[in-house]
Simulated scan of single mutants.
Amino acid sequence: MFEDRQYAAKLAISLMDLTSLNDDDNNSEIEMLCQQATTFAGNTAAVCIYPEFISLAKQLLAKDNIAVATVVNFPSGNGQIDMVVSQTNQAIEYGADEIDLVLPYIALTQGNMDTPKAMVEQVKAACGDEVLLKVIIESGVLKETDLIRKASEVAINGGADFIKTSTGKVDINATLPAATTMLEVISVLNPKIGFKAAGGVRTLDDAISYMELAANMLGSGYLSKETFRFGASGLLVNLLSELGFSAQANETDY
């Protein structure tokens, strides 16, 4: 499907949430990230940063049609619902276009479906129709296919616009088997729900594997930024190298 590697690389760039979620991030690094998001091969879909940098990123990307995403209940997923809703409201006030919410996945492993569903519902209510909600299920911790399926169902039934594999802060992040399970749930419940592979996608070959999987399961039209994303940072360097360009990027893994 992707014999033309340059086409595949350009497509992957357009589907990327270029990410920096490091404890020592500062304004200069976020400015560099925003510069990197506009490449010679086209713009990324979004940048994903901590809430305190939203206003800066919005200012820097105002003319570039690049969304600004941020994270809440991150990375542990252990926050109280009212606190997470407050985080969401504040991020939206700062100007966030997209919210990446960590599902209370530990509660789900303990058989508690009510708290995760309630959190997604209330955060989606705060987002409304204007702010995209991506729900991180932390598939590498859930591990079991049944738990990954349940987490995906809870997220979608709660109102998620996207389901996302990982925070990038655990030992196992995106995997093709987990992606397969998540995409299967999407295909059954609502093929308009988006999917985001985050963590461990470092090369064009990695990206092609996920794009082919999604296209085979949901059609080639699914590969648009409205329904498919990569959460990554170092991946951009590899993709630009494939295209004959060079760039610097934060070599973190989200």
Rank of each mutant, 00 (worst) to 15 (best):
A37P: 15
A37I: 12
T38D: 14
T38N: 15
T39D: 09
A41F: 03
G42N: 10
G42D: 04
G42A: 05
N43R: 05
T44G: 12
T44A: 14
T44K: 09
T44E: 06
A45Y: 05
A46N: 12
V47K: 10
C48G: 11
Y50W: 14
Y50D: 13
P51C: 08
P51N: 10
E52H: 15
E52K: 15
E52I: 14
E52M: 14
E52F: 15
F53V: 11
F53L: 09
S55T: 15
S55K: 15
L56G: 12
A57P: 14
A57C: 14
K58H: 00
Q59S: 14
L60I: 12
L60D: 10
A62G: 03
K63Y: 12
K63F: 10
D64I: 02
N65R: 15
I66T: 13
V68T: 07
V68M: 06
V68E: 07
V68Q: 03
V68S: 11
V71N: 08
V72P: 03
V72N: 03
N73R: 05
N73T: 02
F74K: 00
F74C: 01
F74A: 03
P75H: 03
S76G: 09
S76Q: 07
G77A: 08
G77R: 09
N78E: 12
N78P: 01
Q80H: 12
D82H: 04
D82F: 04
M83T: 15
M83F: 15
V84W: 10
V85S: 06
V85E: 09
V85W: 04
S86A: 07
S86V: 01
T88K: 11
T88F: 10
T88L: 09
T88I: 05
T88P: 08
N89D: 01
Q90G: 06
Q90F: 06
A91F: 07
A91Y: 04
E93G: 00
E93N: 04
E93F: 01
Y94V: 08
Y94E: 10
Y94K: 12
G95V: 08
G95T: 10
G95L: 03
A96V: 15
A96K: 08
D97A: 12
D97F: 12
E98H: 13
I99Q: 00
I99R: 02
D100S: 00
L101H: 01
L101A: 00
V102R: 06
V102N: 04
V102M: 05
L103V: 01
L103Q: 03
Y105C: 04
Y105D: 07
I106N: 05
L108V: 05
Q110Y: 02
G111H: 00
G111I: 00
N112K: 02
N112H: 01
M113F: 14
D114R: 00
D114T: 02
D114Q: 01
T115G: 08
T115H: 13
P116E: 05
K117T: 13
M119T: 10
V120C: 07
V120P: 01
V120E: 11
V120S: 04
E121H: 04
E121M: 11
E121C: 04
E121I: 09
Q122S: 11
V123R: 00
V123W: 05
K124V: 03
K124H: 07
K124D: 05
K124L: 05
A126Q: 06
A126L: 07
A126E: 05
